[in-house]
Nucleic acid binder design. Structure first.
Length: 858
RNA sequence: GCCCAGGUGGUGGAAUGGCAGACACACGGGACUUAAAAUCCCGAGCCGAAAGGCGUGCGGGUUCGACUCCCGCCCUGGGUACCA
C-alpha cells in the first residue's frame, strides 16, 4: 500500500503541540470571549492499557474542542485518572506491590497512549483521584456532608463471605457463592457509612428539567428515583400490641387486601412467628439471605414464602387476614411490609395462586379469574359503615380513602422514593480514608488542617484476621488521640468507594493546583457548568446521579454557582469486537442449528471463517450443510473471548489519524457498533487519497461555480454535522469532496485551504502537515473556521420527481423556487405523465417545491 | 422481573413524512504491471431471461405518500445500587 508518512508526521506534531503548549488553557484568560468546557468521563487506568472504546468518546470531544477553538471560544479540555479501585488492590493482595506503584505505572502508560492519539488536552491540568493533593479535597467535601448531617453510620446488609473473611462486590458473587473459591456468601448487616442522597430526591428529580440530556437518560434517572404517591396504613396485629405499617401506592384497593407480607428482614418478624411456625420462618429467612434483591424480585422464578402464624386486622373492614413472609417484599423499599391485594397486583396475584389465598375483586373491569387487573375501573365491594368507595374511579378513591384514614388516625398520604441512601463505605485498602475519628463511640471529624489523611502502611492488603478492613492491620495508625479533647480515639478503617473521586473531578480541573480551596470561586463562575460531557451509557444512572447529588450539596455550601454540573450530556455506544460466525456442535461433536443450541451448555460454539457461511433467509447457514443455521454476531470485547483490539496496534499500522477517523466513521456516536479492521483500512485509504490530492499542482485561480458549490456545500455539511455531533456523515461529505476534487486538473488554494481546516479536527496531524505545506507558518489550531456562502449553493434547476398515485412516472427539471401551480403544469405536460393520467379522474394534486409532484388519479 | 436503547443490502451505515441503500467495507469485471501490491474505471438490494414484482425485525393502523408517526408483538444489547 502506498503510504503517506504518518510515522513521521504524527510524532512530529505531537512534539510540536507539547513543546509549544498549543492547547494549554492559561489561568489568566480573556474572559470577554465565550467559553466552552468539554469533558470526557475520565478513565480507570487499568493494567491492560487503553481499549478502543476509550478513544471513541475522546475523539468526539476532541473534534468538538478543536472546532470550538477555531470558532474563537476559550476551551477547557482536560484529562485525568479515576485511579482508586479494585484491580490495583487485588494485584497488591497477590504480589505485595503497593497499589500506588501499580497505579502510577498504569497512569504513565495511559497518558502516553492518549498522547499518541493527538488529543488536544491541556496536560498541565492533569489530575488523579489517588493524589493526596486531590483527595485532600474529596475528604474535605466528605466533612461538609458530615457537618450537614448528610453522612451517617448505619447497619446495612453486605455480601459477606465467611470463608474469605471479606465483603464482596455484587459482581464477585455468582448464584450466592463467591467467584473466587466458590464459597457461600450471605447478606449480613454491617456498620456502614451512608450518604443521605434521599434528602435531595425531589431536587434531583425536578432539576432534570434544567439540563440538555437525552430523554432516555433522564427517564432512567426518574425511574431510579422512583417517586410514588400513596399512603402508609397501620394494621393491628392480633395478640401483639404492635401495629404493622405498610406502604401502598394503591390505598384504593384496601378493601381487597386478603393477606399481608413482611420481608424476611422485617424487625417484627420474630414476634410475628409463633411457636408452631418459628422453625420454618427462620429457615426461610436463612434461605432468603443468600439471594440478591434481583433474584428475589424476578417474576419468572415463582414465588416462595411462609405463613408467620399471626393475623392482622384490616382497618377498613375488621377482617382477620394472615401475615406471611416472603422475599418478594424488600426491606429496603417502603416499610418492608405490604398489604397484598391479589386481585389488582400481578405479584400478589401470583403469590395468592401459589399458596391458595383468597382473591377479592374491588375494581371492576378485568377478569380476575384469569389475571390481576391493574387498570382503571369502578370500585366495588368497598364500603363499611362510615365510608363507601363503590361507584368511584381509582383516582377519586385514592383521595377519599386516604382522607378517611387520616381522619381516623389509621394512616396518612405519603410520598415514597425507590431511591435509597447511598452505601458509602468499603472494607478495602485502596480508597480515600475517611477523615473521621471514633471518640467514646461517637464519630468526630478530623480537623481540616490535618488533611489529607493518607492511608497507613500495612504488612498485607487483606482484611485483618478478625475480618476488619485492611487499615486495621496498622494499630499505630488506628489508635490515636482526638486533637480537640485529648481523649483516645480510633480512626475509621473503612474507605470511600471509587465513586467519591469521580463526583467532583470536573471542578478540580478548573483550578487543579489550588492548595487553599477545592476551587477558586472566580474561576468556577467563569467555567461552570460543563458545556458538553461525553461518556459511556453504563454511567447513565449511578455516576451521574451521585455527581449531581454532590454538586447540589456544594451548591448549598456556596462552593459552586450552578444547580447542575453537566449542561449537555451525550452517551457514546459501546464498541464490540469483530463480527464472529459460530457453528454449534452438540456433545458428540455433531453440528446443529443455532436455534437448537440456544440456552444449553451441552453445545459448544466454534468460530468459523466468513467464507464458510452463506446467507439464506434471515440468517446464515453452513456452506457444507445448508440445513445448519449459524450464528452471526458481534460480542463485547473481552480478554476471555480474545477479541480485544489494542489501539496501539492500530496506530502502528495505520496511524492515529486513521484510528480517530475510523472511530468516528463507524456510525452514530450513541450507537453500539462492531469493530472492523477492514473499515480502518477504508479510512486509511481516504487519508492517502487526501495526501495524493495535495500532491497535485496548487493554483491561485478562483474556483469555477461547480467547484465553488462543492466547497461551500462541504463547509456547510461538516459545520452542521460537528454542531450536531454527527461525525460519521461529516466524514462522508469530506470523502465526497475528495472523490470529486481528485478528478480536477489542479487544486485551487481557495478550495484547498478551507478543506484542510475542515479535516483538521478529525485528522489533526495530517491537517497541520498539509497546512504547513500550503505555506502557513503557524499551527492551524486557532485559525478561524471556514464560513460558507449560501449563495454559492444555489442551482438554477433541480430534478423533480413526478408520481402518479404514488408511482414514479417521470422526472422534470424546474427552478427550485417554482410554485406548486408551475410544477403541476410542467408535470402534466410530460408525455409519460399524460399517458398515465389518460382516462382517469384526478382526485388530488400534491406539489412540494424543489422535491416532487404526486397526482392521485383513479 | 423492572428501567432504557437498538433491529435497513453480504457488512458498517445514509435518508427522520417526499426517488430506500449516500459514504465506506467486502465482492465481481476491467485498466495499469513480467507478476503482485498499490492506484484508477465499471457493476451490483432481492426474485426474474425480461416485462415486472417484492423489499427497512413481525402484525395492524394513520396519510396522496411511512425506515420515519400511532397501537400490539418478537429478538438483541446496556443498567439494576460493592465493576467503574
Amino acid at each position: 500500500m502506498a503510504q503517506y508518512p504518518f510515522t513521521d508526521i504524527e510524532p512530529k506534531w505531537q512534539r510540536y503541540w507539547l513543546a509549544n503548549e498549543t492547547f494549554r488553557t492559561p489561568d489568566e484568560i480573556d474572559t470577554s470571549k465565550p467559553k466552552f468546557y468539554v469533558l470526557d468521563m475520565f478513565p480507570y487506568p487499568s493494567g491492560s492499557g487503553l481499549h478502543v472504546g476509550h478513544p471513541e468518546g475522546y475523539t468526539a470531544t476532541d473534534i468538538t474542542a478543536r472546532y470550538k477553538r477555531m470558532r474563537g471560544f476559550n476551551v477547557l479540555h482536560p484529562m485525568g485518572w479515576d485511579a482508586f479501585g479494585l484491580p490495583a488492590e487485588q494485584y497488591a493482595l497477590q504480589t505485595g506491590t503497593h497499589p500506588a506503584v501499580t497505579t502510577q505505572k498504569n497512569i504513565d502508560r495511559f497518558r502516553e497512549q492518549l498522547q499518541s492519539l493527538g488529543f488536544s488536552y491541556d496536560w498541565s491540568r492533569e489530575i488523579a483521584t489517588t493524589d493526596p493533593e486531590y483527595y485532600k479535597w474529596t475528604q474535605w467535601i466528605f466533612l461538609k456532608l458530615f457537618e450537614k448531617g448528610l453522612a451517617y453510620e448505619a447497619e446495612a446488609p453486605v455480601n459477606w463471605c465467611p470463608a474469605l473473611g471479606t465483603v464482596l462486590a455484587n459482581e464477585e458473587v455468582i448464584n450466592g457463592r463467591s467467584e473466587r473459591g466458590d464459597h457461600p456468601v450471605v447478606r449480613k448487616p454491617m456498620r456502614q457509612w451512608m450518604l443521605k442522597i434521599t434528602a435531595y430526591a425531589e431536587q434531583l428529580l425536578d432539576d432534570l428539567e434544567l439540563v440538555d440530556w437525552p430523554e432516555s437518560i433522564k427517564e432512567m434517572q426518574r425511574n431510579w428515583i422512583g417517586k410514588s404517591e400513596g399512603a402508609e396504613v397501620d394494621f393491628a396485629v392480633e395478640g401483639l400490641d404492635e401495629t404493622l405499617r405498610v406502604y401502598t401506592t394503591r390505598p384504593d384497593t384496601l378493601f381487597g387486601a386478603t393477606y399481608m407480607v413482611v420481608s424476611p428482614e422485617h424487625p417484627l418478624l420474630d414476634r410475628l412467628a409463633t411457636d408452631a411456625t418459628r422453625a420454618e420462618v427462620e429457615a426461610y429467612r436463612e434461605t432468603a439471605s443468600h439471594k440478591s434483591d434481583m433474584e428475589r424480585t424476578e417474576l419468572a422464578k415463582g414465588k416462595s414464602g411462609v405463613f408467620t402464624g399471626s393475623y392482622a386486622i384490616n382497618p377498613v373492614n375488621g377482617q382477620k387476614i394472615p401475615v406471611w413472609t416472603s422475599d418478594y417484599v424488600l426491606i429496603s423499599y417502603g416499610t418492608g411490609a405490604i398489604m397484598a391485594v391479589p386481585a389488582h397486583d400481578d405479584r400478589d396475584y401470583e403469590f395468592a395462586k401459589t399458596f391458595d389465598l383468597p382473591i377479592v375483586e374491588v375494581i371492576s373491569g378485568g377478569n380476575i379469574e384469569a389475571e390481576a387487573f391493574t387498570g382503571n375501573g369502578v370500585l366495588v365491594n368497598s364500603a363499611n359503615d362510615e365510608i363507601s368507595l363503590n361507584g368511584l374511579e381509582v383516582a377519586e378513591s385514592k383521595a377519599k380513602i386516604t382522607a378517611w384514614l387520616e381522619s381516623k388516625g389509621l394512616g396518612q398520604g405519603k410520598v415514597n422514593y425507590k431511591l435509597r441512601d447511598w452505601l458509602f463505605s468499603r472494607q478495602r485498602y485502596w480508597g480515600e480514608p475517611f477523615p473521621i475519628l471514633h471518640v467514646d463511640g461517637n464519630p468526630v471529624p478530623v480537623p481540616e488542617n490535618e488533611l489529607p489523611l493518607t492511608p497507613p502502611v500495612v504488612d498485607e492488603y487483606k482484611p485483618s484476621p478478625e475480618g476488619d478492613p485492611p487499615f486495621s492491620r496498622n494499630a499505630e495508625w488506628v489508635n490515636t488521640t482526638d486533637p480537640t479533647t485529648g481523649k483516645p480515639a480510633r480512626r475509621e478503617t473503612n474507605t470511600m468507594p471509587q465513586w467519591a473521586g469521580s463526583c467532583w473531578y470536573y471542578l478540580r480541573y478548573i483550578d487543579p493546583k489550588n492548595d487553599r480551596a477545592a476551587i477558586d470561586p472566580e474561576k468556577e463562575k467563569y467555567w461552570m457548568p460543563v458545556d458538553l460531557y461525553v461518556g459511556g451509557a453504563e454511567h447513565a444512572v449511578l455516576h451521574l446521579l451521585y455527581a449531581r447529588f454532590w454538586h447540589k450539596v456544594l451548591y448549598d455550601c456556596g462552593v459552586v454557582h450552578t444547580k447542575e454540573p453537566f449542561h449537555r450530556l451525550v452517551n457514546q455506544g459501546m464498541i464490540l469486537g469483530e463480527v464472529e460466525i459460530n457453528l454449534f456442535r452438540d456433545a458428540e461433536g455433531r453440528p446443529v442449528s443455532e436455534s437448537e443450541a440456544r440456552n444449553d451448555e451441552e453445545f459448544t460454539a466454534e468460530r468459523i471463517p466468513e467464507s464458510e457461511a452463506v446467507k439464506k433467509g434471515d440468517g446464515f447457514v453452513w456452506k457444507q450443510d445448508e440445513s445448519i443455521r449459524l450464528r452471526s454476531r458481534a460480542h463485547k470485547m473481552s480478554k476471555s473471548r480474545g477479541n480485544v483490539i489494542n489501539p496501539d496496534d492500530v496506530v502502528k499500522q495505520y496511524g492515529a489519524d486513521s484510528l480517530r477517523l475510523y472511530e468516528m466513521f463507524m456510525g452514530p456516536l450513541e450507537q453500539v457498533k462492531p469493530w472492523s479492521m477492514k473499515g480502518v483500512e477504508g479510512v486509511y485509504r481516504f487519508l492517502n487519497k487526501v495526501w495524493r490530492l495535495f500532491e497535485n499542482p496548487l493554483t491561485d485561480t478562483e474556483c469555477d461555480p461547480d467547484q465553488n458549490r462543492l466547497v461551500h456545500a462541504t463547509i456547510k455539511k461538516v459545520t452542521e454535522d460537528i454542531e450536531g455531533m454527527r461525525y460519521n456523515t461529516a466524514i462522508a461529505s469530506m470523502m465526497e469532496f475528495v472523490n470529486a476534487a481528485t478528478k480536477w486538473e489542479s487544486l485551487p488554494r481557495a478550495a484547498a485551504n478551507p478543506f484542510v481546516l475542515l479535516l483538521s479536527p478529525f485528522a489533526p496531524h495530517m491537517g497541520e502537515e498539509l497546512w504547513a505545506k500550503l505555506g502557513h507558518a503557524e499551527t492551524l489550531a486557532y485559525e478561524p473556521w471556514p464560513e460558507y456562502d449560501e449563495s454559492a449553493l444555489l442551482r438554477d434547476e433541480v430534478e423533480i420527481l413526478v408520481q402518479v398515485t404514488g408511482k414514479p412516472k417521470a422526472r422534470i427539471m424546474a427552478s427550485p423556487t417554482a410554485t406548486q401551480a408551475e410544477l403541476l403544469t410542467l408535470a402534466k405536460a410530460h408525455p409519460d405523465v399524460a399517458a398515465a393520467l389518460e382516462g382517469k379522474t384526478i382526485r388530488k394534486e400534491i406539489a412540494v417545491p424543489g422535491r416532487l409532484v404526486n397526482i392521485v388519479a383513479t
